[in-house]
Design a binder for these strands. Structure first.
Lengths: 348, 348
DNA sequence: AGGTACGGTGGGAGCGCTCCCAGTCGTGAT
DNA sequence: ATCACGACTGGGAGCGCTCCCACCGTACCT
């Protein structure tokens, strides 16, 4: 504040040079002080710091970026189709986590929405034109060329979620398999005999993992995984409805459903109501994600919570490692999986 | 792509100078072509464009920003306490709108989360250190010093929503009064005799406006605005519950409620159910915002929809005007109010 | 023929930093 | 007293662009 007031109308903000003049030292010295170099005597440092304070000096990041060939910024890339998901706590939590972790680093956060393939293409150019030091990629599809593109231009990047079991790019994911498994174990533990699942699109690894968790739990209970108890959808409400109808027609006797997302669970819940089934008495229902939808359903939905904000934080930490690690080739690609947690509510 | 491939390992991207050399022209000419200046002959332009394509040249924005003393970026500032709202479609829509409108301008979007007062302070310094050309401020409270701070350092800024009736800073707001009025008119039009309202915190202008709309509709119907039919809350679910209980104790006979937000409506709905009232038969309920909550309530909630994405777009347009307008002092501060629309569902 | 306009063009002078290379100076060893 | 050697320091040389001014023609006037 003291600083910002001082230049209101005046010709711009003070520069390094002016600080140097005022402190009676050279530019290099001021730069050293600003950047916390140890090779400065205490006397000098104090003098410079005083000059900085008096002038309200704030380094010009643009100039710094140009000179140092850094950007002091990372981009958070969000594919437009997913922007809908924005409305989910998922994104907001990721952003909050990213923001929190970034706050300590004085890197800036660039938000990049990708709407069209054309923009996706421009993106690679833009990013490589030294506008950012690293990239955070959210909800990347298996066929997205971006990660490999970034790899090729040696741009540090981190994914939220894996594209496949053998993801080569650094990522932060949550334990989808374990989460799904605990959800189904819960259902079985509550005495449900015939537990079905509504999966996401099975070309997405996340959907595969959740199905895998379902299967594991079923088998662990000494049962068979029946094809009739598995219906795949597309993570939408309408998809959830369709899948639920299909399951019901195949196995009218089912008494438990694990939906791989809350939104699909919401769709399923509607169909259950339409067909006169009471949740949880007739059919117990569990979702995944623990979004706002889950809390506002009637009855409130049991769901698997991901440590989403922590994922955002972790992504930044991983990215910083990557940015560092580029110098020493010995560093290996950081990858991590965060635990999930079942949140019990009245639907099961 | 063609461009990005070409330099993989090579020493960095091509520069303006290299393009100039290849095209056999001077730096200035290339710069002119890149920036679409008309003062270039077609022959030359073509030659330069070819060189650009061959080299896969992409201008270095950092250098450009430094030289031109611009940032080619705008900041979207979001106060942390509101980050919760992120989960609402409101924010995601704003962001989507902002992103869409920005896509045509090649300005970048900087996301800035403010968590602590300390960060808020740093922000002013940062912003003024030429890191952005303008600022978009979301959900600003009446006592927020930021707008005036930005005003003082002559940083173009736009608010989403007004702080008061006499907002001096450029803003984009939605028609809260009109929206509330149409909601209440709807309730009255459906034959409701005793319509109450749950307001937001009355120190917020948005809450005042919505209350004003309620009052206008009540008076327009030739009725009195009764104090017993007005309960104020804080935009939270719990607040909605409390307010609903209060209203019910004061006027057990009420048959219509206009809640100034969907979330408060959700709280009210719970109390109505607890007290054995059926929605909409006994009490008709209308909310404001038309968020996901509204669609997922049981029964689905009638609500006032804001053109939120359009607000985002408008904010950018207004900001661009402001950035332009700074040069010619004649331009007046752009301000605009967007219409709302009542979305009818089963709750009324 | 000599002027006068311009449309076009080249390139110097920075923008505010970081990097890095020469110093300068004191200190302890010889 | 001399020398070597760090600890500090100053400032030149850019980073890649935009701005702007001088300059070259050619077309069009007197």
């Amino acid at each position: 504040m003291a600083g910002t007031r001082r230049h209101g109308a005046g010709r711009g903000r003070p520069t390094l040079e002016e600080v140097a003049a005022r402190a009676g030292v050279g530019r290099g010295t001021v730069s050293r002080v600003i950047n916390g170099s140890p090779r400065v005597s205490d006397r000098t440092r104090t003098a410079v710091e005083q000059a900085v304070a008096e002038l309200g000096y704030v380094p010009n990041r643009v100039a710094r970026a140009l000179a140092a060939n850094r950007a002091d910024a990372v981009a958070l890339v969000i594919p437009e189709p997913e922007t809908r998901l924005f409305a989910e706590p998922y994104f907001s939590d990721i952003i909050r986590g990213v923001g929190a972790e970034l706050a300590d680093t004085d890197l800036q956060l660039l938000l990049t929405l990708i709407r069209t393939p054309k923009e996706r293409q421009r993106l690679a150019d833009y990013l490589s034109a030294h506008r950012v030091d690293g990239v955070l990629l959210v909800s990347v599809h298996a066929d997205d060329p971006l990660p490999d593109l970034l790899e090729r231009i040696e741009m540090p990047a981190v994914l939220s979620g894996r594209r496949s079991a053998h993801e080569s790019v650094p990522y932060v994911d949550s334990d989808n398999t374990g989460g799904a498994q605990s959800a189904v174990e819960h259902l079985i533990g509550r005495g449900r005999e015939t537990v079905a699942t509504i999966t996401g699109p099975l070309d997405m690894y996340v959907a595969q993992c959740r199905l895998e968790g379902y299967s594991a739990a079923v088998r662990a209970a000494g049962r068979e995984v029946e094809a009739e108890l598995v219906a795949s959808a597309d993570f939408t409400e309408e998809g959830g409805r369709r899948a639920m109808r299909q399951l019901l027609s195949q196995r009218p006797d089912l008494d438990g459903v694990f939906a791989a997302s809350d939104v699909m669970a919401a769709g399923a819940r509607q169909v259950l109501r339409e067909t006169g089934r009471v949740v949880p008495d007739d059919v117990a229902l569990v979702g995944f994600e623990d979004s706002a939808v889950a809390r506002h359903m009637d009855p409130p939905l049991t769901s698997v919570r991901q440590a989403t904000e922590e994922m955002g934080r972790a992504m930044v930490r991983v990215l910083l490692e990557e940015i560092q690690g580029r110098s020493d080739r010995t560093a290996k690609r950081p990858q991590m999986v965060l635990p999930t947690q079942l949140v019990r509510r009245e639907s099961s």
